[in-house]
Amino acid sequence: MVISKSQIEEILDEVKDPEIPVISIADLGILRDVKVNDDGFVEVVITPTYTGCPAMMEIERDINNALKKEGINDFKITTVLSPAWSTDLMTEEGKARLKEYGIAPPNPSNEEDIECPNCGSYNTKLVSQFGSTACKSLFKCNDCLEPFDYFKCH
């Protein structure tokens, strides 16, 4: 029996971002497509967030391991650049998970007023455009005084 696309997607749901282990690569928008041809050959198409993202190699390895663990050996992983990854590709569920984890999700409508993921206050301040990883910037909450990461729009 040929494995279905949705079965592959279910397996890949277990592959998380190594830097943010609560969000799957599908929710993050890194997983662009899954193709299964008539012979059951699987192609997994991914796209990098940032060109120098050091997590990409690890993500490829994790995909590789996840598929092999389920007995799928006939596959390849393709990386595409175009159209370029954008935070718009992130799912609503992904955004909710980020917030739960303590990272403010991207807010394309207004990048000035960012909600503190710890106390919910909008009285926050940008500390640095560059945070702990390339995809985040560093904020501070003026109410609860906690610093937090903001997943910046890209």
Binding site: P48, T51, G52, P54, S128, Q129, S132, A134, L138
Partner: peptide
């Protein structure tokens, strides 16, 4: 913060 900014940009450049 600026140390991190410079190494972030460095990483982008090496990625490119």
């Amino acid at each position: 913060e600026q140390d991190i900014a410079m190494t972030n940009i460095s990483l982008d450049l090496i990625g490119q």
